[in-house]
């Protein structure tokens, strides 16, 4: 039963990823990425990680995809690369290099590791319970947890500064009227 769920979800994830790369419209790409993220959330559930399942759906499938869709539609950048590619010869080279990377990863993971990864572990389901995660976050990992909030604050301030029209006006040379926009 678990095999069936895994195989279906894995196929959906790979199809979502491939369709994201191939679709010409950036809005479609964002929606295919949503498909990919949701199937990875299902895999988290299969791996006994209910807390990460919820975080994945809320943060990735909720917040990040909405942010991407907003920016794509705000910029009107759905079809940004219709014009001819200047470096067309790079595309097949990039494809070959990606496939070489995949072959390398498969070689290292499956031919150079022992039997430890070849079998699944049933184990108890309590190791990844939200209660355990919360306890570890607020005892062993308390310092990284607090540093995370500083990182989020720094990102917040960075975004506000980037979109601060008053700061841009100061950069305009005296004598010319600043419009708040560089050109």
């Amino acid at each position: 039963m678990e095999y069936i769920v895994f195989i279906i979800t894995a196929i959906v994830a790979i199809i979502g990823a491939a369709a994201m790369l191939m679709s010409r419209n950036a809005v479609h790409s964002a929606l295919f990425m949503l498909l990919n993220f949701s199937s990875i959330a299902v895999l988290y559930l299969l791996l006994r990680a209910p807390f990460l399942f919820a975080v994945q759906l809320i943060v990735y499938a909720g917040a990040i995809i909405v942010l991407f869709l907003f920016v794509v539609m705000l910029l009107g950048a759905e079809r940004a690369e219709d014009e001819a590619d200047k470096l067309a010869w790079q595309r097949p080279v990039a494809l070959v290099m990606g496939l070489v990377l995949l072959a390398e990863a498969v070689y290292v993971f499956f031919l150079r590791t022992g039997a430890a990864m070849a079998t699944g572990v049933a184990g108890d389901e309590a190791f990844g319970a939200p209660l355990k995660i919360g306890e570890a976050l607020f005892t062993t990992y308390l310092l990284p947890f607090e540093i995370t909030s500083v990182i989020l604050l720094a990102a917040l301030i960075g975004v506000v500064v980037l979109h601060q029209p008053a700061l841009k006006n100061k950069l305009v040379l005296p004598g010319e009227r600043g419009t708040g926009n560089g050109d």
Partner: peptide, 19 residues
């Protein structure tokens, strides 16, 4: 249980698609 290597294989495939 699904073997861990299957998940790692899927992870490698998705990573390569990202690259």
């Amino acid at each position: 249980m699904v073997p861990t290597s299957y998940y790692v294989l899927l992870s490698a495939v998705l990573f390569s698609l990202g690259v």
